[in-house]
Amino acid sequence: MLVDTPFNRYIVPPEQGVWLLPHVDHEVQCLTDVSLVSFYIATEMRHDMPKECAVLEISPFLKVLIYEARDFTDHYSWEDSQGLHLRLILQTLSEAPAAVYQLPFPSDKRLVKVLNCIQQTPSNHDSLEQWGDVVGASSRTLSRLFKKETGLHYTEWRQRLTIQIAIRKLIQGNPIAVVADELGYASVSAFTYMFRSKTGMTPRLFKGKQVR
């Protein structure tokens, strides 16, 4: 899935979940067939959950818990077996590590122009100095704005955008070599190294998880 909020974009591959805070406007786009299970957690139960929206790693154990809870009714007691099951899901969710599929959105019009240009031409690996000539700002100004508006340095933000584009293309069935070329990598091995360093798995393994 692709989840957009006013401030961030989240890619949610298989074996992942997205945590959204209350009252956050969001739009969900399914890039492939999706089976979705949603949990709504009362305010008083959220104290151990992340304080910001995030993509969470879903362990095999947690996946089984979620699968078994799909058929629970609304008529459960917090003290009965179903309530105990849901409390275990909540506890396990609160301990789930955050994944790297979050992309903070900038609002400055110059950074937005950079974002749009890279999305249209993902193979573009221009430096901040080169982007400065395009958007009319110094590289120092752009560097400061990226850190202020996204919390990330440009190189890290650029890599996260690359990961999001790569995941979307891989999910859509594009061959790894084609994705690597479209993203401007000189070789599949260079693309694989980047992808594995950011996601913990190779593109081939990631594609394999899509068909299970």
Rank of each mutant, 00 (worst) to 15 (best):
H47W: 06
H47E: 13
D48A: 14
M49Q: 12
K51T: 14
K51D: 13
E52D: 12
E52T: 14
E52C: 04
V55K: 12
V55L: 07
L56P: 06
E57C: 09
E57D: 10
E57H: 14
S59N: 10
P60T: 10
F61S: 12
F61T: 14
K63G: 13
K63H: 14
V64I: 12
V64H: 12
V64C: 06
L65T: 09
L65E: 11
Y67L: 04
Y67K: 14
E68S: 09
A69H: 07
A69Y: 04
D71K: 14
D71M: 04
D71W: 09
F72C: 02
T73E: 13
S77L: 11
S77C: 02
W78Q: 14
W78F: 09
W78A: 10
D80V: 01
S81A: 11
L84N: 13
L84D: 07
L86Y: 10
L86T: 08
L86A: 01
L88H: 14
I89S: 07
I89T: 09
Q91T: 08
Q91I: 00
T92S: 14
S94A: 15
A96C: 13
P97A: 07
P97V: 09
A98E: 15
V100M: 09
Y101N: 11
Q102H: 08
Q102G: 08
L103I: 14
P104L: 06
P104R: 12
P104A: 10
P104N: 07
F105V: 04
R110A: 14
R110I: 10
L111A: 06
L111D: 03
K113D: 10
V114W: 00
L115G: 00
N116W: 07
N116K: 15
N116R: 14
C117F: 07
Q119R: 15
Q119G: 01
T121K: 13
P122E: 11
Q130Y: 01
W131H: 12
G132C: 08
G132Q: 08
G132D: 02
G132T: 05
V135G: 06
V135P: 01
A137G: 04
A137Y: 02
S138H: 01
S139R: 04
L142E: 06
S143M: 03
R144P: 00
L145D: 12
F146I: 03
K147P: 00
K148W: 02
E149Y: 09
L152A: 07
H153K: 11
Y154N: 05
Y154M: 07
Y154E: 09
E156T: 15
Q159E: 15
Q159D: 15
Q159V: 01
R160F: 03
R160P: 02
L161M: 11
L161A: 01
L161I: 01
T162M: 15
I163D: 03
Q164G: 15
Q164V: 01
Q164F: 01
I167Y: 03
K169F: 04
L170F: 13
L170V: 05
Q172M: 12
Q172T: 06
G173C: 04
N174M: 12
N174T: 03
N174P: 00
P175E: 13
A177T: 11
V179N: 06
V179G: 05
A180P: 05
D181W: 03
E182F: 03
L183R: 10
L183E: 10
L183D: 07
Y185V: 01
S187E: 00
S189L: 06
F191W: 10
F191Y: 08
